[in-house]
Design a protein around this nucleic acid. Structure first.
Lengths: 236, 236
DNA sequence: TCTGATGTAGACCAGGTGGTTAATGTGGGG
DNA sequence: CCCCACATTAACCACCTGGTCTACATCAGA
C-alpha cells in the first residue's frame, strides 16, 4: 500500500490512546510501515482536542476505551468542531453497540487492535482518501445491530396489539391534529364539524388507547409509530 | 468460490425481476457459475410472495425497480413473514437512499446489476452463510448517508437556537414529567413541591419554548431531542 | 453589599378539558 | 329488514389548565 511515488500529500495523523505502550506501538508501526506523518500523540481526550485544534490533522486515531473522558464523546466533540478532521475509532472489542455509536456520531472508520497492521494502514489510506472504511467483519456486526434495532421498531408498529389500529379513520384524523397541538376548537374548524363532535371523538380515542388525557394520547401515538405508519406503508 | 466438495446443503434461491430477460440472465449465471438451486422465479412481487410461502427458499434475489408493487415493500413483507428467508436487493443504481431503506427493512445484501457475476455469487454465498453483505463501494455510500442523517439530527440538538437549552435544571425535571403525561398534581407529588410551584415552572417553560400548552411543549421537547440529550451528552 | 437568577408559594379567574347521557342520520352486513 | 358501527350534535358539570400578579428565600457574582 502506498508504495512507489506518491503525488498526494502525506496524511497528517494524531494518535490518541491512554495506554502509553500501545500508543508508541501504533506510532512506530505507522512511521515504519507507511509514509503518513504522525504530527502529535495524546494520552487523554481533552489533551487530544487541544492538539487537534492546534495541528488540524487529516486523521485522528482514537482509542475508545479511555477513562475520564471517553473516546466516543471525544469523537463527537471533534465532529462538532467541523474542522474536516476524520476520526478512526480503535478498540479491543468488536461490540456492535460501540461500533454503531461510533459510526453514528461520525467516526470514519473502526479498527480492532487485534487486527493486522496492514489492515490499519489500509484503513487510514481509505479514510484519508475521503472514504468511510469498516472491515467486513465489523461491517457485518454493524448491520446486524442496525437491523435488529429497526426490526423491533417495525414490529411494535405492525403489532395487532397496537391500539392505534382500532381507531376509525375519523378518529385518526382527530388524533393527527392532536399530535400537532391543536385545540378542540381548532380541530372543529379544520374538520368542519362542531366542537362537541370533536370531544366525542377524543373521548373515544382516549378509551381505545386507554389513556386519560390528550398528552398521553399524543405520547402513545408518537411511541407507537403513528407518524411513521405512513412512511412504512406507503414509502417505506 | 464454492469449488470442490461441499458439506453444506445447496442454498435454495428464488429470483424476482420484472424484466424477463434479466431474470433469465441471472438464473443462467447462477446455474452455471454456482451450485445454488434456483427453485423458482417470479416477475412480480405479489407472485413472489406466494412462491416464497410455498417453497420457503433460503435466499431471495429481489429486483427493487419494479412497477405495481415495488421491491422494497416486498422485502418488508417477506421480513414480516418471519420465515428465515434472507433477501438480497438487486438494482441498477447505487442510490444511497435506496440502499439505506433496503437495509433498514431487513435486506441481507445489496448488489448492483452492473457488478461482476463473481460478486453476485460471492454475495449469495455470504448471505447464505448467515452474514450480511454489502460490497465496499455500497457500504461506503450507505455510511455516508447514515452519518449525514445523524449529523443533521445532532446539529438540531446541539444548536444554540434550541430553546430547550434555556431551561433551568428544575424546569427540565418538570418538562421531563410532562413528557410522560403527568398532571400538575402528579408532578407536585413527585418533586415534593406545591402544585402552584409546578404551575409557575410550567408557565416559565411555555414562555421559554414559545408555546401555549403542554401538548405543544411535549412535542417541542420530543422534536428537539429532549429525550436524546442524555444519550448524547452522557452515554452517547 | 446589592442585584439577578432561581426555586418556592398563594390567590384569582377565564377558558379549556374530560366524563356522561342522550339523540339523530347513514351505511353496510347478516 | 334490522342491527351495529360510525359520525354527528347538544347540554351539563366537575376539574384541570394556563395567565397574571405578588411575594419571599437562597445563592452566586459583580
Amino acid at each position: 500500500m502506498r508504495r512507489g511515488l506518491e503525488f498526494k500529500k502525506k496524511a497528517r495523523i494524531i494518535i490518541v490512546d491512554d495506554n502509553y505502550e500501545h500508543l508508541n506501538g501504533v506510532r512506530e508501526l505507522i512511521e515504519i510501515e507507511s509514509d503518513f506523518d504522525v504530527v502529535a500523540t495524546a494520552t487523554s481526550a481533552s489533551v487530544a482536542i487541544s492538539l487537534i485544534k492546534k495541528y488540524r490533522p487529516d486523521i485522528v486515531l482514537m482509542d475508545i476505551n479511555m477513562p475520564e473522558k471517553d473516546g466516543l464523546s471525544a469523537i463527537a466533540e471533534i465532529e462538532k468542531l467541523d474542522l474536516g478532521v476524520r476520526t478512526i475509532a480503535l478498540t479491543g472489542y468488536d461490540d456492535p453497540d460501540l461500533i454503531f455509536r461510533a459510526m453514528k456520531i461520525g467516526a470514519k472508520g473502526y479498527i480492532l487492535k487485534t487486527m493486522a497492521s496492514a489492515q490499519l494502514i489500509y484503513a487510514i489510506d481509505e479514510v484519508a482518501a475521503g472514504k468511510i472504511y469498516l472491515p467486513n467483519t465489523l461491517s457485518s456486526r454493524f448491520f446486524e445491530y442496525f437491523q435488529k434495532s429497526f426490526k423491533e421498531e417495525l414490529q411494535s408498529i405492525s403489532d395487532e396489539e397496537n391500539l392505534l389500529n382500532y381507531l376509525t379513520q375519523r378518529e385518526e384524523e382527530v388524533l393527527d391534529l392532536l399530535t400537532q397541538g391543536v385545540t378542540y376548537k381548532g380541530v372543529a374548524q379544520k374538520l368542519f364539524i362542531s366542537e362537541t363532535t370533536v370531544k366525542t371523538h377524543v373521548n373515544n380515542i382516549f378509551q381505545k388507547l386507554q389513556v386519560n388525557d390528550r398528552t398521553q394520547a399524543v405520547l402513545y401515538a408518537l411511541n407507537n409509530g403513528f407518524l411513521n405508519r405512513r412512511k412504512v406503508k406507503i414509502a417505506i
